[in-house]
Write a protein that binds this DNA or RNA. Structure first.
Lengths: 117, 117
DNA sequence: GTATTACATCGACAGACGTGATTGTTATTG
DNA sequence: CAATAACAATCACGTCTGTCGATGTAATAC
């Protein structure tokens, strides 16, 4: 619910002056914002969000071959999304034989989650 | 910490067969994923994330004229970011005289926040 | 009325994005 | 060895993004 605080009643200013002094400042600094925005951006695609959901709920490693049939996209596109999640530091992978297993990095979502709460 | 569940030992399959049956499924359905991804995408820019931080911590309406000096971007670019946040359903605005006041819509971040926790 | 302020919209640009077809790499099977 | 499977990397494509300058719009001050 918006609350009008009436901290600085606004009036039109003479030429060259600002309308008002800023009274609010971000509590999140630039570095934090960059880190959290990178994570949020990686989650900003429905397929990637569902991918993280699957990997997280599974609480272990998941083979790529199990992920492909879950989504209506080609295998290279899925590989591309997994790569994006890895670049953002959300997941990591391990190769064993022919198969690649992905898992969510612990605490990778913690900073963003804490800020959102 | 990745835990190898060894649920389906993988072996190379004859031609035409899949390597394995999927044993994991998303718990988040497509509609939820679309909504949350839209919010996450809007937060996927450091300036927009800091904007939401300012608006949220202020717990009320904030004049655009107070936001402009906080960021090293032009006024049209800031307006563009605010428009993105509004389109994503995160903020709303109200005009009074020359000034526009923005505020975070209550519970707009709730679904994503709950999923992340 | 004119001038000025606050904000939004438009036009343009380089760069990133999501997608799939194709190709490449690596490991296993026979 | 050759053939095949699983996955990644490359290329191409249309679309979206972040940015700014210029312009538009509405309200206030004179």
């Amino acid at each position: 619910m918006p609350v009008d605080l009436e901290l600085t009643p606004k009036t039109k200013r003479p030429a060259g002056e600002r309308c008002c002094e800023p009274i609010v400042y971000p509590e999140v600094d630039r570095a934090q914002a960059l880190r959290m925005a990178e994570v949020a951006k990686a989650l900003g695609d429905p397929i990637r969000l569902q991918l993280v959901d699957v990997l997280r709920k599974h609480a272990g490693e998941v083979c790529v071959c199990e992920l492909v049939p879950l989504f209506d996209i080609s295998q290279p596109t899925l590989s591309h999304h997994l790569n994006k999640l890895r670049t953002a530091g959300i997941v990591n992978s391990e190769r064993r034989g022919l198969w690649a297993y992905y898992y969510v990095i612990p605490d990778a979502l913690h900073e963003l989650s804490a800020w959102l709460t």
